[in-house]
Design a protein around this nucleic acid. Structure first.
Lengths: 184, 184
DNA sequence: GACTTATGAATGAACG
DNA sequence: CGTTCATTCATAAGTC
């Protein structure tokens, strides 16, 4: 229903429901909509490995090749690869930014609440150097459980804990809501 | 993947009932480890209040400030605030579009009132127009973040209809990444 | 206790 | 490139 996709529709037909959706009928999930690309785990793994290897903005040529290879695992188009890298890169930065702020906040009030919160989503990747190594992708039989690195170390030099004008109000009571928000 | 999923389970099989939460069947009580953010009533109230006041898409800076303040009421992260507004806005729009569809019965083709898009960007709520008042967004601390010049040498302009913009190619040196992808 | 609802979280796609 | 939108998944809370 409601075909009003913003902008343009990727696929001409965008076969809804049971319409073929290409041969790579992956995604055993609930609704196998073919509206948008739904990467398989293998595809995600390869893309992630590429990203982790330092590839951030693949060229058109690279995109084509990656897409071509990934099509082995399922239906995929070049633009999917393009978007994937764009999103992945952007979100990494975005997330990193937010987490940093949270950490700053955490430090600001660690005196009161000092419990080891597991920032399980912090990863270093500060400067993904081009690791010139041959990662063994291509898991024909590997089920991609190689998350051998769960390094979630929390080592980063927090910038300056600049004195926040709106520092933590030590009221410690349920303060008036609106007043606290005037800082916005 | 380890970028930003706080230990979540990728929707591989997407089998309903999948525990998710990273394999470890922890969980059970109040959010502690793998649970998702469970906003307190105070937090919800504040967020709702902000939303009602007209705030739809807080900037990163605002998100951080809101998060900082809301952390007084309990554990919260910036991304929680971010997601909250995204979801809240999207769901209101979703419901609103539902109504819209219903009433487009006659509006159906009011050509003269053509949006730029199908639904356009309805940034403001149509009903509660009482724009921000107390929580007006004035940055009291403009730490040089006021003029964030965006150096956008967007030489890419051609949004060809058939092709998506394979934008920038930074010509990044691409290392041999994998056996199959070494052709890159 | 299973079912439904509400909503947090994630991400593909696209805009400016 | 940062931001925004739409859709979907996952899960806590609410209901019967």
């Amino acid at each position: 229903m409601e075909e009003g996709m913003s902008g343009f529709c990727i696929k001409a037909g965008s076969v809804r429901g049971n319409g073929g959706c290409g041969g790579g009928g992956n995604r055993g999930g609930t609704g196998t909509k073919c509206g948008r690309w739904n990467p398989t785990t293998e595809q995600v793994k390869v893309l992630t490995d590429l990203f982790r290897s330092g590839l951030r903005t693949p060229s058109t040529d690279q995109i084509q090749k990656i897409s071509s290879q990934l099509s082995f695992y399922g239906k995929i188009e070049s633009k999917n690869v393009f978007y994937w890298f764009q999103n992945h890169k952007a979100r990494e930065r975005q997330k990193r930014r937010r987490v940093s702020i949270d950490e700053k906040d955490f430090i600001l009030r660690e005196e009161k609440n000092s419990y080891p919160k597991d920032y399980g989503e912090i990863n270093q990747v500060s400067e993904p150097e081009r690791v010139i190594e041959t990662l063994q992708l291509f898991p024909i039989n590997s089920f991609g459980e190689s998350e051998s690195e769960r390094l979630r170390f929390h080592a980063n030099e927090c910038k300056e804990t600049t004195a926040f004008p709106y520092a933590i109000d030590t009221g410690m009571d349920h303060p008036p809501l609106d007043l606290r928000l005037s800082f916005l």
